[in-house]
Design a protein around this nucleic acid. Structure first.
Lengths: 203, 203, 203, 203
DNA sequence: AATGAATGAGGGTTCATTCAT
DNA sequence: AATGAATGAACCCTCATTCAT
């Protein structure tokens, strides 16, 4: 149930691409209108201004990512390893599948004016928090042996996020293969040791 | 022994901070002049324009990082683990010690105009290459067990680079401690197994 | 039936006067906007820039002159003397009636950037060519006795063009009188001898 | 006995070329310094500014032309035809031999600021006056039959001046030939009829 | 619902010029 | 005699935005 009239999609899409390619500061609102194939006035008819476009794009970008994470975590059980796998997989798929959304969300937060900044940073924080919850629980339960949970978390997030910068769909690695690798890397980073394995080691 | 007359340092320094805080596109050359405490004309007396400032800053940023890496690798031996430790330590220390230089080098390459872009991207690539050489050698020698050397490399680089975004010198972790953790993380990511350890396992 | 919205005329008119009085290089686009009574932005809304204004003015100036010549030559017959009279009269009237247009067309061609220069010079050449055709035909037919048709042509053009520099409508000579004099001068320069006269001389 | 130190010549020469090629308004003082191969400061050491350069160049240009005319008229007798021949020849030679000086003198008077303008225009007038004196005397003596001495004078001057715009030393016509043609054209324009010829006609 | 016209502020850059040395 | 450094004003132009229609 979109609250906005038609024409919106094209404008947002164009703005996203421009912001992503040139950065918010270097993008002119005329570039966006032209790319969207609408008049400058039409753009202002739909949106209050450049900043509102950015807010809309950033919010939507975060929401989409959270939705993807939520969905993945829903089907996962309680097991920290399973949950970490789920969120890493969701993140990797989001980075490869939505590189433009990803790059904006990851770089243009700083272009927000004071009015929107705080709320956005707090919302953004939820992403980090999800990883934190999972990893901390794994450490608590003794399945993640990393001695530095905070740094492990940052490392996992950073490596997943970086995908948006280099991944090309026509590259040598399939998306599924990439997911598998990053899940494996993430488990390595947190030094995952399944209970069964540990028991067997003890034996 | 400055090759340029006085005033230069202040200008570059101011430009670095502005570019880092607002991004190249959103930074006005007047902002830079004001922050440097020089007149607009003085800035143009020393630099041909905004783009030349960016080029100078990016080049210097890369050079400084390469110098740090080179120095660290010189004192390291041939052992891939030792070399990986050295370059990760150098990178972490560069990110914590030069967060402004780091953030510009890591984000403003895209603001280069075509004229400078290619050369810069090629130069930038050398950083990646150094990691690649070390990790590939470790894999070859059988001390890095990671099945995905390329992704491990990207992960290590990404996690080190991300430090520039969140590290604060007055935070809870000392620089030395951080270096230790990231070296450890990096070795984990490449799945380092020292020969001695492996031999003992086989026994 | 103006193809451009209102405001255009005033801008072009103002630009013409400024270019004519100060020269293109010395004219600031603010001078033009102010003289036209529009804002600087309005000017840029209608024209892409200073150079485009010049191009528009030069093109229009040449076109207007050619139109005047064409009209004059249409009503003239085939006789070279009659045609020379027609084009000289048209030129004189254009120089006295449109001194501003004339002075720009005669002096600011050099201010065109490479992109427009060649086309303009070629177009400009048509004026010279019209005189050449007429004079050469007169020489061929034996009614113009000048031994130097090229120099005679240049002389006629130069003397007509110069009118733009000194003629003042409130001067001692009426436009019609001036036309008569320059037509007479031109015929003198080409050493016009009507066939009838020559026959009688021969007799 | 030059009153100015060395280095002057190069600066003036450079300024002349730049003014001639781009016009005073479009020429930057840096262009001049660069072309002269001197520093910007050196230029200001010798000249008070851009306007002073123009004044010097215009004055020198007029003086040189007047000197050439004077020299030519000295060797001429009292006969108006002979004197017209002399001044036309001198003018043609000046236009072909000094195209840069000529073009500046002929076009950049308007770039003078009020302070210098009046004096210059008055000085410039002397050129016109010389032609006027000669032609009027010829008319008075009955050897120039033109009914429009003023227009004849303007025509002669205009056609001579125009040479600076199109003459190229490597063109098809030698300078001497050109002089001959323009002298002949000038005599035609004033409708010169030698007394002898008239007497013979009467006979 | 949609737009062409217009604007003031500010963009990067170049200007002619001055001054301490 | 000569210059490197520095400046304030002005340059052309683009910006995000508004408003009458």
């Amino acid at each position: 149930m979109p609250t906005r009239p038609a024409g919106h999609k094209a404008i947002i899409e164009a703005a996203r691409k421009e912001f992503s390619e040139q950065g918010y500061g270097a993008t002119s609102i005329r570039d966006i209108a032209q790319r969207a194939g609408v008049s400058l006035s039409a753009l202002y008819y739909y949106y209050k201004g450049k900043q509102e476009l950015l807010v809309a794009i950033l919010d939507e970008g975060l929401d989409a990512y959270f939705a993807a994470c939520d969905k993945a975590l829903e089907s996962a059980g309680d097991d920290p390893a399973e949950r970490l796998e789920a969120i890493v997989a969701a993140t990797v798929r989001f980075r490869t599948g939505h590189p433009v959304k990803s790059s904006i969300v990851l770089t243009e937060g700083r272009s927000l004016e004071a009015e929107h900044l705080e709320r956005y940073r707090k919302n953004e924080e939820r992403a980090s928090q999800q990883f934190r919850d999972i990893i901390d629980k794994g450490v608590e339960e003794g399945v993640f042996l990393t001695p530095y949970p905070d740094d492990a978390r940052r490392a996992v997030i950073a490596m997943c996020n970086a995908i948006a910068q280099w991944y090309r769909p026509d590259g040598p690695v399939t998306e599924d293969e990439l997911v598998e690798r990053y899940v494996s890397l993430a488990l390595t980073v947190v030094e995952y040791r399944p209970r069964a394995a540990r028991r067997s080691l003890r034996a």
